[in-house]
């Protein structure tokens, strides 16, 4: 039973170049509804870029993106992004707004809620991440872990069908990583469709349904976590795992 109205996301043969730099060279990724796919790989392998292409913050040069089996490349990209929540490494909360306003802004302007409705919904979301008491603080007065949980609440408030996490714990102090990972685990268990770019091998191994290893703009290996972590087939993945584990 899922707490979320989640969708199935598919990327097909995605290519992207910045000038002569061929960043993505034919990526395929399929994330079944309600499952969690983690994407691992060395820095500069194109993982974060892939996320931005899949919600069309960057338009691909070639390839297709499907949500629930339907291509979204012809849709209005702003509308697509309302269906996909994204959490960033640097949190990217709005520093000039309170915690509650960070969440209610999109609800008011994009979902057409009244000020009171949006605030109530923001408080609900904050309650879910254990930060209701911080509603009227500024982001700068929160710890990194709290900021990231607010960022997750902000994304969830839009009732997305898919959630993207772009190295969501990489900028956190070690003692704060656990709380954010716990929240992400709750979401995954609650049936949210998630794509998680991460350096947290423990999370990737224990929580995700499928692990994809990327290097130099291609998918090198993909499969269930047990298989990738215990029996890597390619030399590149073997090398990567021996470096990070």
């Amino acid at each position: 039973m899922s707490e979320f109205v989640s969708g199935t996301l598919t990327a097909k043969n995605i290519h992207l170049s910045f000038g002569s730099n061929h960043v993505l060279r034919g990526i395929d990724l399929h994330v079944e509804k309600g499952t969690t796919a983690s994407v691992i790989g060395p820095s500069g392998s194109g993982k974060s870029t892939l996320l931005r292409v899949m919600n069309r913050l960057i338009e691909p040069d070639q390839g297709d993106i499907l949500l629930d089996g339907r291509s979204v490349l012809k849709d209005n990209p702003d509308e697509l992004r309302r269906r996909i929540g994204m959490v960033f490494q640097q949190f990217n909360l709005f520093p000039h707004k309170t915690v509650a306003e960070n969440i209610s802004l999109a609800l008011r302007k994009l979902r057409g809620m009244s000020k009171e409705q949006a605030r109530d919904e923001a408080l609900n979301q904050l309650d879910l991440v254990g930060l209701k008491h911080k509603a009227d603080s500024r982001p700068a007065n929160l710890s990194g872990g709290q900021q990231q949980r607010v960022a997750i609440a902000r994304a969830l408030a839009m009732k997305p069908e898919v959630m993207f996490f772009d190295e969501a714990t990489s900028a956190l102090d070690p003692e704060l990583v656990k709380g954010v990972l716990a929240l992400m685990t709750d979401l995954a268990k609650g049936g949210m469709t998630m794509v998680v770019v991460t350096h947290e091998m423990g999370f990737s191994r224990n929580v995700s349904d499928v692990v994809t290893f990327m290097d130099a703009g291609v998918v090198v290996e993909s499969g269930p976590p047990e298989q990738l972590f215990t029996d890597p087939r390619t030399e590149r993945l073997q090398g990567f795992l021996s470096d990070v584990l």
């Binding site: 879910l128 991440v129 254990g130 603080s137 500024r138 700068a140 007065n141 929160l142 710890s143 872990g145 709290q146 949980r149 102090d173 003692e175 704060l176 656990k178 709380g179 954010v180 990972l181 716990a182 929240l183 992400m184 685990t185 709750d186 268990k189």
Partner: peptide, 22 residues
Amino acid sequence: TGRPEKKEPDEAAAVVGKGAQA
């Protein structure tokens, strides 16, 4: 400097949700 506001200590900030106990 901004308006002064007290930060929570990091230990208090770390605990969250059902998953934290797992």
